[in-house]
Amino acid sequence: MNLSGGLIRSSLARKYWMALTGLFLCSFLVVHLIGNLPLLTGNKEMFNSYAHFMTTFPLIKIVSYLLYISILLHSVDGLLLARSNKAARETRYVKYNGKANASWSSRNMAILGTLTLVFLIIHMKSFWYEMHFGNIPTYMSGDGDELKDLYSITVAAFQQPWYAVFYVISMMGLGFHLWHGVSSSFQTLGINHAKYTPIIEMLGKAFSVIISIAFASIPVYLLLS
């Protein structure tokens, strides 16, 4: 198998990895969103046992390593691609009318991705790091499990207005990233068909709007309640 040339280093291969990791991250977003819904219903017990389950169940542990690798690969590959794309045009145009032929989000994937990366780092420091290595107060649940009270930490964090605003802006960035990204990944993997591509594009855009608004609604709700 022509690994180094064909499936790792070539320009096409690097896009296959972007698409595969990107789609995997999309599937994670869905799981993550469902897990967070108890924040909207104020169900502290459900949220904390979900967090407990996610950090301790062995199978989830394996998937979580896949997730860390995907974020790393997607970010590093994405930024390297952006760098080589810049290098492919040494002299800039004096006048370049980008909006004449391509959508805004498709032209700004690297900036939107970087915004998402900054968000991810801050987000993981606040919750993932605290959950794994921080000192979160614990209590005994009804089922006799010792649970970390991530719920109260989360609610407290989102009641700081700047933090909630930062979340909403980041989710808009992610939304635009996916507005182009979801259908783009199908094209990258070679899936383009006169009958199905318009449907894929529509579903991709719907996904990006639903995901970003749903995530953004959590801090807004907690801030206002």
Binding site: S11, S84, N85, A88, N101, S103, S106, R107, S184, Q187
Partner: peptide, 9 residues
């Protein structure tokens, strides 16, 4: 040449 971002331009 650069890589493709599927902008469609």
């Amino acid at each position: 040449f650069g890589n493709c971002t599927n902008t469609g331009a």
